[in-house]
Design a protein around this nucleic acid. Structure first.
Length: 561
DNA sequence: TAAATTGGCGCC
DNA sequence: AAAGGGCGCCAATTTA
């Protein structure tokens, strides 16, 4: 029995047009949550709407959770670029308006309040076109999966903003005070930041230096006899000069103050929750982006303040080496797939005798996926090409396609943007033209793995969302285990503590489901590392594959609450 | 003076 | 000579 599709379209005057095969009716906006709740409880149809961000937040606020939807805006843009979609089938009444439809922005959240005076979008018309486009595609199965996953992701995004990451403001405040001193008056530097600035000024003999000004800083460094090309931390760290240490400390503290300080907290946290907003498919590769609160760059420094409620726990799980595994799956490279059997793919490459050390494996693979041609990474690429010919050939083909101005696609069928967009103006200079082609080749090279990785992750969180709902027998979303953060290849679930182990199991099962959906009979392992913690900062501490990158200048403290 | 760009850093 | 992909955010700086 196919799932009923119910399309919702906004009408003038606070009315909603509800359409389905069985007929149509009108519902007042105020009555919509009750209407959706009733039908959801009865048959759980697929709700078809223009933009999840315009409909779902109000439903969630009214305590209504839906199990499935189709986000017409996301799917329209997806199909517009999908090589396997017949573009003629997408054309029709209002289709140009769907082309132009951008994401809802935070200020206009709550469609219920917004009264759009312009022509209303008809969800039923667009839905029919999208259904037909997918059905008639030679790749309808994969495209259909992608459409469903993209839409499920939109539900997850809205639910995460609604539920929020549990947040302890007192712990965050203590952390800020520790690094920066007391909160300064508006426009002033915090005490400890000013002290560090003074130490820099002293060491460089420039009493009026503003350390936030790169030109001033560069000039001061050069006057002190330090011939540096820029003022990046990596460059500075190589120097031996008394100004370096306070400057690096200043930079890190200033970044905390500006990006995740008191002002950020006031804007993005409330009621014991951090509520950033996500933008599904905000990146051309299909990865999400975040347009408020910086959810996808949740700095390690403030993670100690993300603490589960009493009696609850945070389950933090991430996929190890997602993109290399995706590469193994989509290229069908048996040697790489063999190395991927286990928790550490890079170690697997070492054990298979392909490479001397784990770090070489990582450099080589990342270099191949990013298009490195020089340095240590570039040398490793050449070496590994012999060991993993199919995987590396797939990347080379993608790069070549981009260099000649073509488009590439992910495994499920998302297409890269056409080169016309990127190369709007012709480049006269031959050198610059060649450089631009190489740059576009690096983009398409990476697009195939980054984009397919994003598809795997979407399937993962979509399936996990269903499993989490099934774990809690009753109650609204926030009373059950629920997703609170999604960072490309990592998810955080806030759960009643007694269900934590079941959540871990659900995450692993969902990963297996995603692998089967995306890679079919090619079975590729996607091992998860999982930790059950009280604070986000405690996650992953015991991971054997912990990266040993540069030491942070400031000690990473864990503040107890 | 406002808008766009740049350099730096955070995350994956 | 050029030199590894995708994002967001901030202050300073440059451009319109």
């Amino acid at each position: 029995m196919p799932v009923t599709r119910v399309q919702l379209s906004r009408l003038p005057g606070g009315r909603v047009l509800v359409t389905e095969q069985a007929g149509h009716r009108e519902v007042g906006l105020d009555d919509l949550p009750a209407y959706v709740a009733e039908r959801e409880g009865r048959e759980a149809p697929r709700w078809v709407w223009d933009d999840t961000g315009r409909w779902y937040p109000e439903l969630l606020a009214a305590g209504v959770r839906v199990s499935r939807c189709q986000d017409l805006r996301l799917v329209h843009h997806l199909l517009r670029r999908a090589p396997a979609a017949d573009q003629r089938l997408l054309a029709g009444e209002q289709s140009e308006r769907w082309d132009r439809l951008g994401p809802s922005v935070a200020s206009e959240v709550g469609l219920f309040a917004v009264e759009d005076t312009t022509e209303q979008l008809r969800a039923d018309l667009e839905d029919a076109r999208q259904l037909r486009t997918v059905a008639e595609s030679p790749e309808s199965t994969r495209l259909g999966l992608l459409v469903a996953a993209e839409s499920a992701g939109a539900l997850v995004a809205a639910e995460m903003t609604y539920a929020g990451m549990p947040w302890r403001n007192d712990v965050h405040e203590a952390l800020l005070r520790d690094v920066l001193g007391p909160r300064p008056p508006r426009g002033a530097r915090p005490q400890k930041l000013e002290q560090l600035a003074d130490r820099v000024r002293e060491a460089l003999a420039t009493p009026r230096l503003n350390p936030d000004s790169n030109p001033e800083l560069l000039a001061a460094l050069r006057r002190a006899g330090l011939e540096v090309p820029d003022t990046r931390a990596h460059t500075l760290r190589a120097l031996r000069h008394p100004a370096v240490e306070p400057l690096l400390r200043y930079r890190q503290a200033a970044h905390l103050f500006q990006t995740n300080g008191w002002a950020w907290s006031e804007e993005w946290t409330s009621g014991g929750r951090f509520r950033p907003t996500y933008q599904p498919a905000g990146s051309v590769t299909g990865r999400w982006s975040s347009n408020g609160g910086g959810a996808l760059s949740f700095p390690a420094l403030v993670r100690p303040a993300a603490i589960a409620d009493d009696g609850w726990a945070l389950v933090v799980t991430d996929v190890s080496q997602l993109e290399p595994r995706v590469l193994a799956g989509m290229s069908g490279d048996r040697a790489l797939a063999h190395a991927a059997r286990g928790a550490d793919l890079y170690q697997g490459m070492v054990d298979d005798g392909a490479v001397a050390g784990r770090n070489d494996a990582k450099l080589g693979l990342l270099g191949a996926m990013y298009g490195a041609t020089s340095g240590e990474s570039g040398r490793m690429v050449a070496e590994l090409t012999r060991r993993y010919p199919q995987a590396f050939a797939l990347l080379e083909r993608a790069a070549h396609e981009g260099e000649r101005g073509g488009t590439v696609r992910t495994l499920l069928g998302r297409g890269s943007p056409s080169v016309d967009d990127a190369w709007a103006d012709a480049e006269a200079d031959v050198e610059r033209e060649a450089s631009r082609r190489r740059a576009y080749g690096r983009f398409t090279r990476n697009f195939v793995v980054q984009g397919t990785g994003a598809e795997w992750a979407l399937c993962w969180i979509a399936d996990l969302r269903n499993r989490l709902w099934a774990l809690g027998a009753h109650g609204p979303l926030q009373a059950r285990p629920h997703l609170v953060l999604f960072l490309h290849d990592e998810v955080v679930v806030h759960t009643p503590a007694h269900l934590a182990e079941q959540v871990v199991a659900a995450a692993r099962e969902a990963a297996a489901t995603a692998s089967a959906l995306v890679f079919r009979e090619l079975s590729i392992d996607f091992p998860l590392s999982a930790s059950v913690v009280r604070s986000y900062a405690e996650a992953g501490k015991s991971s054997p594959a912990a990266e040993t990158d540069e030491e942070p200048v400031l000690p990473t403290q864990s503040v107890e609450g």
